[in-house]
């Protein structure tokens, strides 16, 4: 897991002003935070803003870090907020908290039953396959995408994802399932055209 530094980063040292230790923290978490920004905002420039603002913010507020969550979860929380703030600025119509009323499971229902799971990895991750996957992730509504990225891409637990996004664990689970099924459906649509002989419908 890339979230566990090989030797533990010292919060005390960072608070005491140890720049080298802060640099270690930055190196440990800058890749996942940049990826999160990239996937949430969709372009490198905005992702870089999210990245820089996250660490500037962390540096300013690290004295107030209470240690109720891990340092990693705290950083993801700042990063998620930075991404959402920028997103709201760019797309004011996006509503991240909209999920509460959307619990009806109508659109959860799988409609495509093509089993593409046994296709070889080099086909699934060919340039074309990778693009299909990236596009599918990009099409997830922001509120689902954020949960999916933290949990399934970056490997946070349900609890950590809930802490980072200030959601209940139940809400994280609901969003995660919706995200996973939505992605599955998109990819199934894509691969059903490539596996016509085995398609059931």
């Amino acid at each position: 897991m890339n979230r566990q530094p090989s030797n533990e980063i010292s919060l005390e040292a960072i608070i005491a002003g140890d720049r080298a230790e802060f640099a270690r923290l930055v190196d440990e978490y800058s890749s996942p935070i940049y990826r999160l920004g990239l996937r949430m905002l969709g372009n490198p420039q905005d992702a870089e803003d999210v990245l820089q603002n996250t660490f500037l913010n962390a540096l300013t507020h690290i004295q107030n870090f209470e240690g109720r969550s891990s340092l990693a979860t705290w950083l993801y929380r700042i990063a998620a907020n930075e991404a959402l703030m920028l997103l709201r600025k760019k797309k004011p119509e996006v509503n991240i908290e909209e999920m509460e009323g959307e619990e009806d499971a109508e659109d959860l229902h799988p409609a495509r039953f093509v089993d593409w799971s046994a296709l070889p990895e080099d086909e699934l991750l060919s340039d074309e396959g990778k693009k299909a996957l990236d596009d599918a992730i990009q099409q997830l509504p922001e509120s689902l995408r954020l949960v999916f990225l933290l949990r399934d891409v970056e490997g946070l637990s349900i609890k950590e994802t809930a802490e980072a996004l200030n959601l209940t664990e139940t809400n994280v689970k609901t969003r995660l399932l919706r995200a996973r099924l939505a992605l599955r459906e998109q990819l199934s649509a894509y691969y059903s055209e490539r596996l016509p002989a085995r398609s059931e419908k």
């Binding site: 089993d115 593409w116 799971s117 996957l133 599955r184």
Partner: peptide, 20 residues
């Protein structure tokens, strides 16, 4: 099929290629 393809979807996003 839903199970297999959902699992595979999750596997794919965790490959290094998806995590530059």
């Amino acid at each position: 099929v839903v199970l297999n393809t959902t699992k595979r979807t999750i596997d794919l996003v965790q490959t290094p290629l998806e995590k530059p």
